[in-house]
Simulated assay, not measured.
Amino acid sequence: MKPNVRLLRKHRRYSDEFKKQIVADFEIGKFSVYQLSRLHGVHSTLIYRWIYKFSTFNEKGVRVVEMENSSSKKMKEMEARIKELEAALGRKQIQVDYFEKMIELAKTELDIDIKKNYSTPQSTGSGKTKKK
């Protein structure tokens, strides 16, 4: 048993350049705070302090909230949405091509000009209704 022996805490000092580099890695989205913490052996609260101090995006009094995999999840959702919209656009383009071909066939085989049908009389509307 060792009486009167206290554990000495190791205090590490980090240079401003090191802190700014970590903040820059976080800002460009290269790493999350958790990943930076694991990579450099620095506690995440300390990294958040550096973000508040050195970040160009964060203002004083604004809180940084980082969701786990939020940016990658959002990116995957956006990519899925883009694929869905491209597929819908492709289907619509096929429909347009189909309708144009049908109009062309109606003109050549049935001698009906659907695009420029001037012989159709204009509509006079639904007529006047009686007021009660």
Rank of each mutant, 00 (worst) to 15 (best):
L7P: 10
W50M: 11
V42C: 00
W50I: 14
S32Q: 07
P3R: 06
F26D: 08
Y14R: 11
L36Q: 12
G29K: 01
I47Y: 07
L46I: 15
K10C: 04
L8R: 12
V42S: 00
H11Q: 09
H11W: 11
L7V: 11
N4F: 14
K20C: 04
V33W: 03
R12C: 04
Q21R: 13
G29R: 02
I22T: 12
N4S: 05
I47N: 06
W50F: 09
R9K: 14
L46F: 13
A24Q: 11
L39Q: 15
S44Q: 14
F26I: 08
F18C: 05
R12S: 05
K10Q: 11
Y52Q: 14
K53A: 04
H43E: 15
I51V: 15
R6V: 10
F31P: 02
L46W: 12
Q35A: 11
H11V: 15
K30P: 01
I51G: 01
P3C: 00
F31E: 03
G29N: 01
R13D: 08
Y52T: 12
F31D: 06
H43Q: 13
Y14M: 02
T45M: 03
K19S: 04
D25H: 03
R38K: 15
V23P: 10
I28E: 05
Y34L: 08
K10E: 12
R6L: 07
S44N: 06
V5W: 06
Q21A: 04
R6K: 15
R9H: 12
L39F: 12
R9Y: 05
K19N: 05
S44V: 15
F26Y: 14
I47M: 01
W50V: 14
R6G: 00
E17H: 05
G29Q: 02
I51Q: 04
K53C: 03
I47D: 07
L8T: 15
S32M: 10
E27H: 02
D16M: 02
R12I: 14
R49A: 10
K10F: 10
K19I: 09
I22R: 01
V23L: 01
I22L: 13
W50G: 05
F26M: 04
D25W: 03
H40K: 14
I47R: 03
